[in-house]
């Protein structure tokens, strides 16, 4: 059964960019969410194995999503894809359980490298 992956970003461009830049060998059903609240609704009702998570978002930001995933012990891997590249922010999301941090814009090379590193492709 194919894995289900969720792309969460408030920008349509960023969601499309990421979707299109995913490695072709990555066999997954792709869901999308436009903010953290939408993402949590999906995560609570669907079985999602991997989340690509933006940080700066309205409603509920990426840090809030990570906190909820941790608090509710949801079983999914999170790759943060963000423009907020400050070391302190990277440290914070890694402490909250993120698997990896990808600096925006998410290019095919960057995604392939990180997904290969963690055995996702």
């Amino acid at each position: 059964m194919a894995l289900t992956a969720l792309i969460c970003d408030d920008s349509l461009l960023a969601r499309n960019q990421l979707k299109k830049s995913l490695p072709s060998v990555f066999d997954a059903d792709i869901l999308t969410a436009g903010n953290g609240v939408e993402a949590l609704t999906i995560l609570r009702t669907r079985e999602v194995g991997l989340v690509f998570l933006d940080l700066t978002m309205p409603e509920l930001d990426g840090v809030g999503v990570l906190e909820a995933i941790k608090a509710e012990a949801m079983d999914c891997l999170v790759i943060v894809v963000s423009a907020d590249i400050q070391p302190e922010m990277q440290k914070r999301v890694m402490e909250l359980g993120a698997l990896a941090f990808v600096q925006k814009p998410a290019t095919a090379d960057k995604l392939a490298a990180v997904m290969h590193k963690y055995g996702l492709i």
Binding site: D10, S11, L13, T56, M57, P58, A83, D84, Q86, E88
Partner: peptide, 30 residues
């Protein structure tokens, strides 16, 4: 939306520079 995302990315880079310059953390908003 496209412009907003480009601005976001550029702003992230600028904030990182500012944070390093001032030795503090910059809170980013949309």
């Amino acid at each position: 939306d496209c412009l907003q995302e480009l601005v976001n990315v550029a702003m992230g880079q600028a904030s990182d520079k500012l944070a390093r310059y001032l030795g503090t953390f910059v809170h980013l908003q949309v």
